[in-house]
Amino acid sequence: MTVARSLFIPLVLFLVIAFLIGPFLIIVAASFSAGETLAFPPQGFSLRWIAKVFTVESFRASFGMSMFLAIGGTLAALVLGIPASYALSRYKLPGAEIVRTIVSAPIIVPGIIVGLALLRYIVVPFQIGITLALFMAHTALILPYAVRVVSASLENLRSDIEEAAVLLGSSRLGAFFRVVMPNIRGGILSAFILGFVTSFNQVPVSLFLSGPGVRTMPIDMIAYMEIVFDPSVAALSSLLALMSIGIVFAAERFLGFSRYV
């Protein structure tokens, strides 16, 4: 019984982690291949595919687009989401549940529907550019995460410190910036990182929202794979994953990111 249990735990963990991480490690290994096609085990060792990633014009453009959407969309979602979270956690708001449902709904509805609906009923009738449409879609998509994470850190903060600040002579707005913001900074940064990663990796919302020269990074990767099956997408995937993991790791290290998510 004890022997069985002492074997059981490491075995389960090994298998689960191998299943979850293994495929990604194969991709990383394949990106150092010297061969012409994507394969494992890699044929030889070279950095040619990693180097190639930086020379593909469409990758550069779509990377720029995805960065813009991830950073801009997350900032916009925070600008909308922080006041909304504050209202939801600090006020007796009439219809609070309705507001909460509306702002968190984009997380429940499949992204492909959001993208299509936006295309048909906003982009086409109002003649909006694809870039703006993508920006709006990504902002709407990140908003639920922003509201959830910021609300959680507001719930953990006593509201009477704001009253204390007011009684010491601060205005309500001043109290927010002097005593609320410094204390939810960690939550806001966590929301930013979560929003960034979600937006950057998002595919379905962006599926229908692409135009000449306007594509997000993951969509561009899929399009590239359909034409060329070389290890450059593996190399690109590895680099992007390294970026995401690096950001999250730094956030965990310096902020305790996981407390907020």
Partner: peptide, 20 residues
Amino acid sequence: ALALALPAAIFAAAVFLVPV
């Protein structure tokens, strides 16, 4: 409270809820 919450709600409704 409404002034704080409405921009987010209106945005989500316009970009997401109504089209969907």
